[in-house]
């Protein structure tokens, strides 16, 4: 499971950095490396682009996993370069921005948009896998999530937009309910599809969601 990101446009990044001339760049060795949005190659390319635009890059680093506690160490190790910067340009996903926010008072400007939590189905193809709804249905839907795999997130079967096993919103996309039907049939568990699924609870945990274990 990975945090799937897309780089913001050069114009949007420039806009985000307006008035902030000294920049320290942070990439991530995990998810944004995998999606080529914030690994070492992209961080170096960003450094060069910013320098061409007249920015002063005070330094850069790629944290192995920007969302965990290695971030604190990376911030300390790069203390002087970060201190002399006006801001951090984050090429990690939003979770990395949140983590850095714990340790750094300076503005942290995201260079990527975090799109979804997904998996890499085939090389270079990332698919949303879990919407973290808090009411997992996978046991009743043959391991295919109707919340993420169906455009409308329908839990009671296909809509009328199903088109020879494809979805009307994207002819390249499989209809989730055709997939679920086929797999449940293979498992001889089609009775699960006949079961009424009541309306979803959108407050399984109250927003903003949090959980304390102990």
């Amino acid at each position: 499971m990975k945090s799937i990101t897309r780089q913001k446009s050069p114009e949007d990044i420039q806009q985000g950095l307006s008035g902030l001339d000294r920049v320290f760049i942070v990439g991530c060795g995990t998810c944004t490396t995998m999606t080529h949005t914030g690994g070492i190659d992209e961080v170096v390319a960003m450094k060069e682009r910013l320098q061409e635009q007249g920015k002063r890059v005070t330094g850069f680093t790629v944290i192995p996993t920007a969302c965990d506690d290695m971030t604190e160490l990376a911030m300390k190790e790069n203390g002087p370069a970060i201190s002399s910067a006006d801001c951090i340009l984050s090429m990690s996903c939003a979770l990395g921005v949140h983590r850095m926010n714990l340790y750094i008072g300076k503005p942290i400007i995201p260079a990527v948009d975090t799109l979804f939590i997904g998996i890499e189905d085939s090389p270079g193809y990332f698919r949303e896998a879990c919407a973290q709804c808090g009411q997992c249905l996978l046991g009743e839907t043959a391991g295919i999530c109707p919340i993420t795999a169906c455009h409308k997130g329908l839990v009671n079967g296909p809509c009328g937009g199903t088109n020879n096993g494809r979805c009307e919103v994207d002819k390249e996309k499989d209809c989730a309910w055709t997939l679920i039907y086929n797999r449940l049939k293979e498992q001889d568990r089609l009775d699960l599809m006949r079961k009424y699924q009541p309306p979803r609870n959108h407050h399984v945990t109250l927003a903003p969601r949090s959980l304390r274990i102990q």
Binding site: N156, G157, P158, G160, N164, Y181, M193, R194
Partner: peptide, 18 residues
């Protein structure tokens, strides 16, 4: 509503019955 020409038809019929 129901879509008698949907392909595959079986998932539609299950929903129809529901």
């Amino acid at each position: 509503i129901v879509t008698p020409e949907a392909q595959p038809i079986e998932p539609q019929l299950i929903k129809f019955e529901k």
